[in-house]
């Protein structure tokens, strides 16, 4: 089968959501996003199956699968596991070769990744032991205010100054939010304050690896335009937009699928070379 028709997959099992991407000939054929459950193994099967069905592809047609994310070790059908840092770098570089800085804000952790022109990771910084500056922080706060995340995004663009949320810790910030509500501070102000708190935290991580253009934001929080706008203002830069309306939440899974595609090509090339060498030897002797 020619390379263009090769089917590879990436499965990203995150703390909040899980994602799967199917590539056919190195191009996105389909993807699926679903909530993560208490069983990463079941979640992996489910989200993978959804992506396969969406592309009309049978599991047997997939030649190489790479697992990534928090639960990557539980993607039992994967050919290999690769860390989410490498996968986000690969996914972003695959779509945008000019990108040098990637900020991935997921449910449980936030990563700032610096890559070189070849897409190799130069440096990374991450917060993986604290909810501050992650999607989980915003989930907590939305719950405290009885809102959905999508309502928060909408309200961010209403009039009002950002309220002061001095704590980055989700536990203390929740208390602050409750106090602000009791003081009848308008919700848009509280939401802007929360987004500023998250963006401040993310910006310190990005500065650790250095702000080098072009910058792209990935992960679920990249879909929150309120956070994106606040972060852009803090960093005094504009994030590049992913081409073709690609969902920023699937970049890790996409990178995993691309790594799978490259591995598959490399394996095939080695097999062909071995075959050619055998042929040469046979001809000689």
């Amino acid at each position: 089968m020619p390379n263009q028709e090769k089917v590879t997959a990436g499965v990203d099992i995150g703390s909040s959501t899980s994602k799967a991407v199917i590539l056919v000939g190195g191009k996105i054929a389909s993807y699926a996003i679903g909530p993560s459950s208490v069983s990463p193994t079941k979640t992996a099967h489910l989200v993978f199956q959804q992506a396969l069905s969406s592309a009309g592809i049978h599991r047997e047609q997939v030649t190489y699968t790479v697992g990534t994310g928090y639960g990557r070790a539980k993607v039992e059908f994967a050919d290999e596991n690769v860390s989410e840092i490498s996968c986000h770098a690969k996914g972003a570089h695959h779509l945008l070769a000019e990108v040098r800085t990637i900020v991935d804000v997921g449910g449980q952790d936030t990563k700032a990744i610096s890559i070189n022109k070849s897409g190799l990771v130069m440096e990374f910084a991450m917060n993986d032991k604290c909810a501050a500056g992650t999607g989980r922080f915003l989930d907590f706060m939305a719950r405290s205010m009885g809102l959905e995340i999508k309502d928060m995004v909408q309200m961010h663009f209403q009039d009002g100054y950002p309220a002061m949320i001095s704590s980055m810790c989700s536990v203390f910030a929740e208390s602050e939010v409750i106090n602000l509500i009791n003081e009848e501070v308008p919700l848009p102000s509280i939401i802007k304050g929360l987004h500023k708190s998250v963006a401040n935290r993310i910006s310190t991580l990005i500065r650790r690896v250095g702000v080098e253009n072009e910058i792209v934001m990935t992960g679920g929080v990249a879909k929150n335009n309120g956070v994106v706008e606040t972060l852009e203002n803090i960093l005094k830069c504009r994030f590049v937009t992913l081409p073709g309306n690609v969902d920023p939440q699937i970049i890790g899974a996409l990178g995993a699928a691309v790594i799978g595609f490259e591995k598959d090509q490399s394996l095939q090339s080695r097999t062909e070379n071995a075959g050619n060498n055998r042929g040469t030897q046979q001809a000689q002797f």
Binding site: S83, I85, S86, A89, L120, V121, M122, E123, F124
Partner: peptide, 11 residues
């Protein structure tokens, strides 16, 4: 581990 596997070894 992350540094070795994500940054150095791929290079």
């Amino acid at each position: 581990r992350r540094f070795a596997h994500d940054v150095v070894l791929p290079r």
